[in-house]
């Protein structure tokens, strides 16, 4: 069993579109401990279809009796966040075990955390640890306004001058150059923000000479691409051919055709849905592989990536 059963014991409305949920174990088993930056997959059943949405654990890793997650009601919700926003205290949920693809660098001498909106969630558990170890850190947090800024009072009270807020309604903007320049050796950056902001900080950091491994990113949404073309895949073991329409992912197309593939985040960040590719040109849209791995053209993350050629032969 790869799950934990939890019960919601508290729901708080943090902003007009963000709610936080406190979860405790529902079956007497202890909750699994987690490292800062971790997330859990929450199982949501809608119209008989089971989906799993991942949410960062924003509670303290040192609190072993409960988890806290915060959920943004997405504008174009596929149903997951909508569902969570209308359930009540007492509801039981099945969740996975904590996973972490956004860890703190233990040898860093300084940590700079950048949060955009709901991106604050994984950084909250990191802050608890950084503060406990008395490491040097700064948090830069952008939101629409103070009332739309989740955890504003908590952060201001607990971390004081180590947090800087930027409210876009007041035209306060983050300057990546100003924040990243002239930082000491051993500085690491942690980005959890919308693509444009995250990409901007990444580019500025590289331009300033930050080594690639000092820049850590957590991506909440899949990479956007305007040019989605349909393509076909041939399953090498059976010879079966499946069409992937332009509005469906390879993963979804395989699932519909009766070929369930392992998956987790479904946004190209974790690698669980990886499939081997034997022929064809892959259009990588993930945020998981290294440039070298992409160049090998022999594997694909089926939840996000597509094909440049008309057909791919996959190892299935």
């Amino acid at each position: 069993m790869n799950e934990q059963t939890v019960k919601i014991v508290d729901i708080k409305k943090l902003t007009s579109r963000i709610k936080s949920f406190r979860l405790v174990s529902a079956n007497g088993k202890k909750l699994a401990p987690f490292s800062p930056g971790s997330h859990v997959a929450v199982e949501i059943t809608l119209e008989k279809k089971v989906r799993r949405n991942s949410y960062s654990l924003c509670s303290s890793p040192y609190e072993t009796d409960f988890y806290e997650i915060a959920v943004l009601l997405a504008e174009k919700s596929r149903g997951g966040s909508q569902y969570l926003h209308q359930i009540s205290v007492g509801t039981e949920l099945n969740i996975g075990f904590p996973k972490n693809s956004f860890t703190l660098a233990s040898l860093a001498r300084k940590h700079i955390l950048i949060a955009g909106g709901i991106g604050i969630t994984p950084l909250l558990s990191m802050l608890t640890t950084l503060s406990r170890y008395q490491t040097t850190f700064e948090l830069h947090y952008t939101a629409k306004s103070q009332t739309e800024c989740a955890f504003y009072e908590f952060l201001k009270q607990k971390y004081g001058s180590q947090v800087t807020f930027y409210f876009s309604e007041k035209d306060e903007r983050l300057s990546s150059n100003k924040i990243l320049k002239e930082q000491p050796l051993g500085t690491h950056i942690y980005l959890c923000a919308p693509h444009s902001l995250s990409d901007n900080f990444y580019a500025e950091a590289r331009a300033l000479g930050y080594p690639d491994l000092a820049i850590h990113r957590e991506i909440f949404g899949a990479a956007k691409t305007n040019n989605k073309k349909p393509f076909t895949v041939v399953l090498s073991q059976s010879g079966k051919e499946i069409t992937v329409p332009k509005d469906k992912t390879l993963l979804a197309a395989l699932e519909t055709a009766g070929f369930p593939v392992n998956y987790s985040c479904r946004v190209g960040g974790c690698g669980a849905c990886e499939l081997g590719v034997l022929a064809g040109e892959i259009h990588h849209l993930d945020s998981y592989y290294s440039p070298e791995e992409r160049a090998k053209q022999n594997c694909i993350l089926s939840c996000t990536s597509r094909a440049k050629s008309k057909q791919l032969i996959i190892d299935l």
Binding site: L185, G186, T187, A214
Partner: peptide
């Protein structure tokens, strides 16, 4: 000791 990594 100042946090420099293999990349640097």
């Amino acid at each position: 000791s100042f946090g420099m990594s293999e990349e640097e």
